[in-house]
Design a protein around this nucleic acid. Structure first.
Length: 543
RNA sequence: GCCCCUGUAGCUCAGCAGGAUAGAGCAACGCUUUCCUAAAGCGUAGGUCAGGUGUUCGAAUCACCUCAGGGGUACCA
């Protein structure tokens, strides 16, 4: 209908010699204002120096519209033109949902295109925390939206298993290991104090009991890395996330990509040495101060491999690249982009989604989180407490740019009034009605149902809500914000519950009407299931 | 100091490609179950959209300023 209106109105504007540049349509909030509206008459009023109402009337005078799409249109103060869809159109759309089924809502925006989503990317120094969890679910859900829109998506995890932090980790494990053998040894300065490392040390002791203070640190380091990666991957698995590529930063050194970047930047005269370190002259690129790329110790800072990695992302030819970062990484992003631009690379297709922090509340107190300190809450613990479905929903129900308050007590206490269960219940309710309908001997085959019987107020509302699904997916895609989807599904569930209380689906005296209503419920269930599938939340048939 | 995010109902937050009377959940109060799952539905109450100025026919939405909270501003990642 949108396409039809746009094409029709554009033609009419042009016929009158008026500009169609500012033609736009919106969905009115109130149903008395129709299904689609345009404000074009008001935006033209200034240029044409006439009243919006007059303009609208002249524009629409004598319009012969397709009655299988548009039922009527009205011109109202202060100058809106409101369009009402025909019931033919509505029911045709509904029939299409039934025909398309599991594919309802899929878009073609990304057809034939590739996308890469980088998320989590936590180094293997500790279990995933509640903070990582947000990024995990955000990235995974966004990936699903992209897949749903036709993209071929690569979910990627970038990690670094070398450098100062990993060395500290190895030393921390060594200290824990020796501690278990009764040898008092202090953790290194700034070392990892978390309990999980004691467990890793226990496993190492069981595996290799003969290590001592003189043993090679690399041994501890690699054992720690393997153990912790196993923990991380198990958390990801529990929450239903699977990465396609684990990209090791080290490979950038081995293939010489790091040196290439340095050479390219040097060619541009943007590299200099000072105090034994190698500096990137970011001050020439509009950034406040210069940055160190290689420390005086010879080790690069994280910026250099980040630049090389993103150069590789571009070289790998993705049509769309999305980085999901926590707010603490916000500073690196402009450096990386400016470096890429200096190297004459196109960066328009690289998008960065920055999510704000998760504040965890327990008993009304803010829980401080730090991987290196002992007191943090892991994603695993969170899943243990509230379950994977609830965790996934809570993480994406808010926009990424909002600070997220995750109240553990509330999440646990409220399990029965949780929005997740509200959605799942809507789905289960439909399944239940179908089961009951069969028991009562109704024909639950919806083929050939007479949809024209669906004409009551809340029925129409439910159909409209169902048909909005593709627009919601599109909105998520354009904004790279996934929280619109859970909001929408919640509204759809509300419309369903409302419908359920108003009308009886199973009515043995009116089998045709029952069949038509079952057909509608089928369409609603298709939509709920498709939506929940994207969110990675289960859709049980019983509650 | 500078950069990013945020400020909307008691609480948690949607809405922010400018549109018509600003929404939801929770909390509060009241109502609905001989009938397809009440994990539901309906109603009442609750707002100077942080404050100010500007742009516009029209601003919660855009611009600028101020205030408040969070994050960053490392030869940590």
């Amino acid at each position: 209908m949108f396409d039809y209106l746009e094409q029709q109105l554009t033609a009419r504007l042009e016929a009158l010699g008026w500009s169609s540049d500012r033609l736009q349509f919106s969905r009115p909030k109130k149903k008395e204002n129709g299904d689609w509206a345009t404000n074009v008459a008001m935006t033209l009023a200034r240029d044409l120096k006439r009243s919006p109402i007059q303009i609208a009337e002249e524009l629409m005078a004598g319009w012969q519209y397709d009655q299988s799409i548009v039922a009527k249109f009205i011109i109202v103060q202060p100058g809106f033109i409101n369009f009402f869809q025909s019931s033919d159109y509505l029911l045709t759309q509904l029939q299409q949902v039934l025909d398309i089924g599991d594919d309802f809502g899929k878009g073609t925006t990304g057809a034939g295109k590739t996308a890469q989503v980088e998320f989590v990317s936590a180094n293997p120094t500790g279990p995933l925390t509640v903070g990582h969890g947000r990024q995990t679910v955000l990235g995974d859900t966004l990936s699903s939206i992209l897949t749903w829109s036709g993209y071929e998506v690569t979910r990627e995890y970038y990690f670094n298993n070398a450098g100062r932090q990993m060395r500290l980790l190895g030393e921390s494990l060594k200290a824990r290991y020796l501690e278990l053998k009764g040898l008092k040894m202090a953790l290194p300065d700034g070392g990892y104090e978390g309990e999980y490392l004691i467990n890793v040390a226990r496993n190492l002791l069981a595996d290799q009991p003969d290590l001592d203070a003189d043993s090679d640190i690399d041994l501890f380091k690699s054992f720690a890395e393997e153990s912790i990666f196993a923990i991380i991957k198990s958390s990801l698995d529990r929450i239903g996330v699977k990465h396609d590529v684990f990209y090791n930063e080290r490979s950038l050194y081995e293939t010489g990509k790091i040196d290439e970047v340095l050479a390219l930047l040097r060619e541009q005269g943007l590299i200099y040495e000072k105090d034994g370190a190698t500096w990137f002259k970011t001050s020439e690129l509009g950034i406040e101060q210069d940055r160190v790329l290689v420390k005086s110790s010879g080790e690069p800072t994280y910026r250099l491999p980040d630049i090389a990695y993103h150069r590789e992302k571009i070289a790998r030819g993705f049509d769309l690249v999305v980085d999901i970062f926590g707010a603490d990484h916000i500073d690196a992003y402009p450096d990386v982009l400016s470096a890429l631009k200096v190297m004459d690379l196109k960066t328009d297709h690289i998008h960065v989604v920055i999510h704000q922090f998760v504040t965890l509340l327990r008993s009304g107190e803010v829980v401080k989180m730090s991987t290196r300190k002992a007191n943090f809450v892991t994603l695993d613990e969170l899943i243990d407490e509230v379950g994977a479905d609830v965790v996934r929903y809570f993480y994406i129900m808010r926009s990424a740019s909002s600070h997220l308050n995750f109240d553990l007590d509330l999440a646990k206490r409220q399990t029965e009034e949780n929005p997740v269960f509200y959605l799942q219940y809507a789905n289960a309710r439909i399944s239940s009605i179908f089961r009951r309908a069969k028991e009562r001997g109704l024909d639950t085959n919806i083929e050939g149902a007479d949809l024209t019987l669906l004409n009551e107020e809340f029925t129409i509302a439910l159909i409209n809500e169902t048909l909005t699904f593709p627009e919601v997916i599109d909105h998520c895609l354009r904004s790279l914000e996934v929280h619109h989807l859970p909001s929408y599904l919640f509204e759809l569930a509300t419309a369903l519950h409302k419908f359920y209380t108003e009308y009886k689906v199973i009515d043995l005296d009116q089998p045709e009407l029952s069949q038509a209503r079952l057909a509608l419920l089928e369409a609603v269930q298709i939509t709920l299931r498709n939506g929940l599938r994207i969110l990675g939340i289960s859709a049980p048939d019983h509650m």
